[in-house]
Simulated scan of single mutants.
Amino acid sequence: MGRNGTGAGRVTLATIAEALGVSRATVSNAYNRPDRLSAQLRAQVLRKAHELGYAGPNPVAATLARGRIAAIGVVLEDPMSFAFADPAASLLLQGISEVCGQQDSALVLIPGPSGPIARVALVDGVICYCDLPDGAALETIRERRLPFVVVDGPAHDGAGHVGIDDRSAAHAAARHLLDLGHRRFGVVAMPMHPDGWEGRPSPEREATAHFLGTRRRMAGYRDALAEADLGHDAAVVEERAPYGRDAGRRAAHVLLARDPRPTAVLAMSDELALGVLDAALSLGLDVPGDLSVVGFDDVPGAALARPALTTVRQPHREKGSAAASMLLPGPVRKDPLVLPTDLVVRGSTGPRRP
Rank of each mutant, 00 (worst) to 15 (best):
H232N: 11
V276M: 03
D259H: 15
G95M: 05
G231I: 02
L255C: 11
R333G: 03
L13Y: 07
A264E: 07
K48M: 15
Y54F: 15
A172N: 13
P351Q: 12
Q314Y: 09
P307S: 09
A322S: 14
A224M: 11
A121P: 06
M1P: 14
A264F: 11
A170N: 02
D286N: 10
E271G: 06
F296I: 03
A137T: 02
K48C: 13
E227W: 04
G213N: 11
R258G: 07
M190R: 06
S269T: 07
Q94P: 05
V108W: 12
V332T: 13
D131I: 09
R42M: 06
G5N: 14
A207M: 02
V188S: 00
P154H: 12
V236P: 03
T140E: 13
D270G: 04
A137E: 00
G186V: 01
P113M: 01
A305W: 00
V60N: 11
L178D: 05
A39E: 15
F82C: 13
A279V: 09
T214V: 08
A305G: 10
G220W: 07
W197E: 15
H161D: 09
A280Y: 02
P351K: 14
L37I: 12
L37E: 08
Q103F: 05
S348T: 14
M218F: 09
G181Q: 04
S269R: 00
M268V: 04
T6N: 14
H253Y: 10
H176G: 00
E139V: 12
A65G: 15
I72G: 04
R144Q: 11
A17P: 06
D104A: 15
A121R: 02
L76H: 02
G53F: 06
T263L: 09
P262S: 13
A39Y: 12
A155H: 15
H253N: 10
D278R: 10
A55N: 05
